[in-house]
Design a protein around this nucleic acid. Structure first.
Lengths: 146, 146
DNA sequence: CTGCAACTTCAAGTCGACTTGAAGTCAAGG
DNA sequence: CCTTGACTTCAAGTCGACTTGAAGTTGCAG
C-alpha cells in the first residue's frame, strides 16, 4: 500500500500520516524509491490511534501505549481511569445541556432575570475551567474526511 | 476595583482580563493614573463569558452575544442548537465510556482479541466517536438543574 | 521624598496537531 | 524516452486563548 491508499482507507490526509510516522506513531515497511510502503497492520494501528484520540489521550500518551515492538500494551487501569474521567465529563455536560435547554426555553424577559440561568451562571463562574492540555480530552482540529 | 481585585474574585489572571478588554469582551470604567478601574458589573459579565466558554462558544462568538450597549442578547435558537450539540457529544462519550469500561474489564488475553474492543476500534476508525474539537465545551461544575 | 510592588503597553512566544508551500525526485503510462 | 502527477523533504505557518518578557510608569507605604 502506498500512502494515498492508506489515506483513502482511513480518511486521514497523507500529511497526517507522514506526521504520525515522523512522531513514531506508525511505521512504514519500506520504500519503493522514495515512496513509503505500508502494510495492512498500519490500518489497525491507526484505528487504535483514532480510539486513543477519541478517548482524549494526546499523541504522546498514545505513543507510550505501544511497546517498542509495536504491540499495544494497554493498561487496564488506565482505561478504567479514563472511563471514569469520561463519565465525569458526561455528567458535567449533562448539567450544561440541561441549563442551555432551560435557558433556550425560559420565558423570562431577560436571561439575567431567569433564576435557572443565574444558577447556571454561578456554576460557570465557579466552574473548573481547567486547561484542556492537562488530563482532559485533547483538542483537535476536525479535518474533513476525504 | 482594580484589576487584581477582579482577578482575585474571578480566579482569572490579570493578563487574561487585559486580553479580554483588548478583545472588547469587557470594559473598564476608567483609570486611576494608568491603572484600570472596573465596577461590579464586570463580574457578571465575566460569569457570562465563563458560561459561554463552558458551553463551547469561542470568544468571538461570545462577543457577538453582547449588544453594543453591553446588554446580553442571547439567541435562544443558538442556545438550543448548542444544547443539541452538547447532547450529541454526550451520546458519543457514553458509547466511548462503555467501550472503555468493557475493555478495562475484558478477560481476553489481548485487547485485539476482544470483540467489544474491536467493535470500539472500528467505531473510532470510522469517526463514530470523534476526538473533541478545539474550542469544544469546557468543564463546568456539575449540579442538578431545576 | 523615595523605594518598589504593582501596574502599564506592546511584541513575541507557547501549546498540540497538523497543514501548507517550495523545491526536488521519481515510477509508471504513453 | 519523456512527461506528468504523485510522491518526497524540510521549514514555516495556522488556529485560539492566552502567557511571558522587556521596558517603562505610578500609587502609596514608610
Amino acid at each position: 500500500m502506498d500512502i494515498s491508499e492508506v489515506a483513502e482507507r482511513t480518511g486521514l490526509p497523507p500529511s497526517t500520516l507522514r506526521y504520525y510516522e515522523e512522531k513514531g506513531l506508525i511505521v512504514s515497511v519500506g520504500r519503493r524509491g522514495l515512496h513509503r510502503l505500508f502494510d495492512g497492520s498500519v490500518l489497525e494501528r491507526l484505528a487504535l490511534i483514532a480510539l486513543g484520540r477519541a478517548a482524549g489521550f494526546s499523541l504522546d500518551e498514545i505513543k507510550r501505549m505501544f511497546a517498542p515492538d509495536g504491540r499495544p500494551r494497554i493498561d487496564r487501569a488506565k482505561l478504567a481511569a479514563k472511563a471514569e474521567e469520561v463519565d465525569r465529563r458526561i455528567r458535567e455536560l449533562g448539567a450544561l445541556r440541561d441549563g442551555l435547554r432551560h435557558a433556550a426555553a425560559c420565558p423570562a424577559p431577560s436571561h439575567l432575570e431567569c433564576p435557572t440561568f443565574r444558577r447556571l451562571l454561578r456554576a460557570a463562574a465557579h466552574g473548573v475551567v481547567k486547561a484542556p492540555r492537562k488530563g482532559g480530552p485533547r483538542a483537535v482540529k476536525a479535518s474533513a474526511p476525504r
